[in-house]
C-alpha cells in the first residue's frame, strides 16, 4: 500500500476517481453510453472529445516545463492555426476537396512549427526568460490571428475538415486517436530513447549538460517546436470541431489550463523531471470537472469559484509538504504546547 501511494500517478488517479464517483452519485446517467448514429454517445465520450485539444497542448507543455521553461503562447498558436486553416479552406472553390483540406492542414502545421521555433530561438539563442519570450507571441499571436481572419468569424462547410474534430472512427471520436498518436509518439521518443534523459538534464542544469556533451540549445529549440506543433494540432481539432475559426476566442486561456494539467500530473515547474501519463490524467481531471459543472447546473456566476476550490484541493493533496505538515502536526500533539513555547522563547 505504501509503495502504491508513493507512485507518482496515485494522487492524480485518486482525484479523477473521486470526481467520477461524485458524478456516479449525483447523476447516474453520467456513465451511460449509448450508440447513436453509429457512434458512441455519452458524457464520458464528450470528456474525451472536448478534452482532446487540452491534452494535446498539455503534452507539448510538459516537455517545455521539463526544461524549466514555460510556453504561454500556445493559446495564440491555437487561434492562428485554426484561422489559417479555415482561411485556406474558405478561399478555395472546393472546400471539401481532399487536396485542399490536406493543404490547409499542412500549411497551418508548418506555421505552428515556425512559431514554436521562434519561441525556441528566443529562449535558447536570445537567452530571454521563457515566460517573457513566449509572452511576446502570446500577445502578438491573437493580433496575427485576427489579421488572418480580419476580425471575423470564418465559417467553413467541409465535412472532410470537420472530421478531424467531430468525426468518429470505430465509434470513438477521431480526435481521441489523434491524442493517442501524439501521446504514444511523445512517450516513445522520450522514454525509449535518450531524448527524455537529455530534456531532464537540460531542465536540471542546462550549462552543466552542455559541458557534459549534450547540445542544450538544440534540445531547447526542438522542445519548443514540438510544443508549437502540439498547439497547432489542438487548433485544428478545435476549429474543425465547430467548423469555424474565431481569432478572438479560440484557445483563450488554454495555456493556463495546460500548465495546470501538467502540474496536477506531478511535473515540477522547476524542470528536470516530467510525467507524460500524469499530464494526461491532469488534463482529464480538468475536463471532467468542467463537464461536471455543466451537468449539475452550477450557476455561471460561481462556476469559477467552484473550479478554483476543486483545483486548490487537488493541488494541496498533491503537495508532499502539505501532506507531511498534517501528518507531523498529529505527531507533535504528543508534546505539551508549553514545552515548545519555552524552548523557542
Amino acid at each position: 500500500m505504501a509503495r502504491l501511494m508513493k507512485h507518482h500517478l496515485f494522487w492524480p488517479l485518486t482525484m479523477l476517481a473521486g470526481l467520477l464517483l461524485f458524478n456516479l452519485c449525483y447523476s447516474p446517467d453520467f456513465f451511460s453510453i449509448q450508440i447513436r448514429n453509429g457512434h458512441l454517445y455519452g458524457s464520458l465520450i464528450d470528456i474525451l472529445n472536448f478534452g482532446a485539444p487540452l491534452i494535446v497542448v498539455a503534452i507539448g507543455m510538459t516537455l517545455v516545463i521539463a526544461t524549466k521553461g514555460v510556453d504561454l503562447s500556445v493559446g495564440s498558436i491555437v487561434a492562428i492555426t485554426g484561422a489559417l486553416a479555415c482561411m485556406t479552406l474558405s478561399k478555395s472553390s472546393d472546400q471539401n476537396g481532399f487536396a485542399v483540406v490536406l493543404l490547409a492542414i499542412v500549411i497551418s502545421l508548418v506555421l505552428a512549427i515556425v512559431l514554436g521555433l521562434w519561441n525556441g530561438l528566443l529562449v535558447s539563442l536570445g537567452g530571454i526568460q521563457p515566460i517573457i519570450a513566449t509572452l511576446i507571441l502570446m500577445v502578438a499571436g491573437r493580433g496575427i490571428a485576427q489579421l488572418i481572419t480580419s476580425g471575423q468569424i470564418i465559417t467553413v462547410s467541409s465535412p472532410r475538415y470537420n472530421y478531424i474534430g467531430a468525426g468518429s472512427l470505430l465509434g470513438l471520436p477521431f480526435s481521441v486517436f489523434i491524442v493517442l498518436a501524439i501521446f504514444i509518439t511523445a512517450l516513445l521518443l522520450t522514454r525509449k530513447s535518450a531524448l527524455g534523459l537529455f530534456i531532464e538534464s537540460v531542465g536540471t542544469n542546462s550549462e552543466a549538460s552542455r559541458l557534459a556533451g549534450i547540445r542544450s540549445r538544440a534540445i531547447l529549440i526542438s522542445v519548443y517546436a514540438f510544443c508549437g506543433i502540439c498547439a497547432g494540432i489542438a487548433g485544428l481539432i478545435l476549429s474543425s470541431n465547430v467548423s469555424s475559426a474565431d481569432g478572438n476566442n479560440a484557445g483563450l486561456w488554454v495555456e493556463l489550463d495546460a500548465i495546470l494539467a501538467v502540474v496536477i500530473g506531478g511535473t515540477s515547474m522547476n524542470g528536470g523531471r516530467f510525467y507524460l501519463s500524469g499530464t494526461l490524467i491532469g488534463a482529464l481531471i480538468i475536463q471532467t470537472l468542467t463537464t461536471t459543472i455543466y451537468m449539475i447546473g452550477v450557476p455561471p456566476e460561481i462556476t469559477l469559484v467552484v473550479k478554483a476550490f476543486v483545483v486548490l484541493v487537488v493541488c494541496l493533496i498533491q503537495s508532499e509538504a502539505f501532506r507531511k505538515k498534517i501528518f507531523e502536526r498529529r505527531k507533535y500533539r504528543k508534546y505539551s504546547d508549553k514545552a515548545e513555547v519555552t524552548r523557542h522563547a
Binding site: 447523476s27 446517467d29 453520467f30 455519452g42 458524457s43 464528450d46 472536448f50 478545435l238 470541431n241 465547430v242 474565431d246 476566442n249 479560440a250 468542467t290 463537464t291 455543466y294 451537468m295 449539475i296 447546473g297
Partner: peptide
C-alpha cells in the same frame, strides 16, 4: 465552441 460544449452537457443531463 463553448455553446457546443455546454449544449452537449445539457443534452446529457
Amino acid at each position: 465552441a463553448k455553446g457546443k460544449e455546454v449544449m452537449q452537457a445539457f443534452l446529457k443531463a
